[in-house]
Computed example of a mutant assay.
Amino acid sequence: MSQFTLLRKRLLSPIGLHAVAFGVLAIATIFLGIRVGLDWHATSASNMDIMAGRAAQLRAMQIQTAPLRGLDKRVGLSRSQIDDFYKKRVPPSYSSILEQIGAIQAKSQVHLGAAQYSQVPGSGDLTEIRVDAGLSGDYPAIMHFVNGLERSETFFVIRTMALTGQQSGTVNLRLGFSTWLRPADAAVSGLPIEGAPKATEGTASDAAPSGEGR
């Protein structure tokens, strides 16, 4: 009997068939194990990528929302600071502006000529009050007056300064500066409004304040 015939009989025998089946199952098991391992690795890598992407999105949202944290407290603090500024530095009336300028004038010992007062139309929480005044005195006194305006508790902003003459140590200066009133206080001040049409003769407007101060 040839070796091929003998091998064939052995393979077709029950033991041979079981051995072949076992080998096929072993190969299939190894193949499936490898496939499962590859699939698990791919799934794990995909999940890690998803988690990393979500973590990056969360970090980006945290960075974007960081300026908003505590916003309610900052808004409340800003409102408190604005209210405090209004109480301390915005004059309550037109007469208080005159009193403050008069106090600075007396302290600096300058001569304040006729000053023109007017209000600037606008919108918002405050109305600008403009003052154009002529000053005369020695140079240190003039600068003392200017510094007094800048350091005053009442909020003054200097707009223009123009030297109009100098003689024997006396300096003549034209000074333009502004302060602000609340709209309701400005409305009852009687000050002329810049840009408004002038009243014609013979009307009731002739009795309106001229806007000249001290």
Score class of each variant (00 low, 15 high):
Gly190Arg: 06
Ala45Ser: 14
Thr164Cys: 06
Pro91Trp: 02
Arg35Thr: 09
Ala114Gly: 07
Phe4His: 08
Asp138Ala: 03
Arg79Asn: 13
Ala52Leu: 09
Leu98Cys: 07
Gly202Lys: 08
Gly102Leu: 12
Leu135Asn: 01
Phe4Val: 10
Ala199Phe: 06
Gly165Ile: 07
Glu150Ser: 12
Ala45Phe: 05
Pro92Asp: 12
Gly33Asp: 05
Leu32Val: 06
Leu25Gly: 12
Gly113Val: 06
Thr29Pro: 00
Val90Phe: 06
Thr65Tyr: 04
Leu12Phe: 10
Val146Phe: 03
Thr179Glu: 07
Val24Phe: 07
Glu128Met: 12
Ala21His: 05
Gly113Pro: 00
Thr5Glu: 15
Val120Gln: 06
Arg35Gln: 14
Lys107Thr: 02
Gly169Arg: 08
Gly122Ala: 01
Arg79Glu: 14
Phe22His: 09
Pro192Ile: 04
Pro140Leu: 09
Leu175Ile: 10
Ser205Asp: 15
Ile50Asn: 07
Thr65Gly: 09
Gln105Tyr: 00
Leu6Ile: 08
Glu153Gly: 04
Gly134Glu: 13
Ala187Cys: 06
Ala106Gln: 09
Gly70Ser: 06
Asp49Gln: 07
Gly195Trp: 00
Arg159Pro: 00
Ser46Met: 09
Ile158Glu: 15
Leu12Gln: 11
Gly148Glu: 05
Gly53Arg: 13
Leu98Asn: 08
Phe156Pro: 02
Glu194Leu: 13
Val157Thr: 13
Phe4Lys: 05
Leu38Phe: 11
Gly176Lys: 02
Val90Leu: 11
Gly113Trp: 04
Gly148Asn: 02
Val171Asp: 03
Met161Ile: 02
Ile27Phe: 15
Leu149Glu: 04
Ala52Tyr: 00
Glu201Cys: 06
Thr160Ser: 15
Asp138Glu: 15
Leu17Val: 13
Glu194Tyr: 00
Ala114Arg: 12
Val146Ile: 15
Ala42Asp: 15
Lys88Thr: 13
Gly202Asp: 09
Gly134Ser: 14
Leu181Met: 05
Gln62Cys: 04
Gly33Leu: 09
Ala19Gly: 08
Ser2Glu: 13
Gln116Asp: 03
Leu7Asn: 14
Ile129His: 00
Ile193Gly: 08
Ala60Cys: 00
Ala26Ile: 11
Ala66His: 10
Val20Tyr: 06
Ile101His: 05
Val146Gly: 03
Thr170Tyr: 01
Lys73Pro: 03
Thr179Asn: 06
Ala187Tyr: 06
Asp125Ser: 11
Leu175Asp: 02
Gly165Glu: 09
Gln3Gly: 04
Pro14Val: 06
Trp180Met: 07
Arg130His: 08
Ala196Gln: 12
Leu17Met: 12
Leu77Val: 07
Val131Ala: 04
Phe145Leu: 11
Asp72Ile: 02
Val171Tyr: 03
Leu17Phe: 04
Val90Gln: 02
Asp72Glu: 15
Ala66Arg: 11
Arg182Met: 13
Leu71Trp: 03
Arg74Glu: 12
Gly23Asn: 13
Gly70Lys: 01
Leu126Arg: 05
Arg130Thr: 13
Arg151Glu: 15
Ser46Gln: 14
Ala184Phe: 01
Glu99Gly: 08
Phe22Cys: 13
Gln62Ala: 12
Leu98Pro: 01
Arg182His: 11
Gln105Asp: 08
Thr43Met: 10
Ala115Ile: 02
Asp72Gln: 12
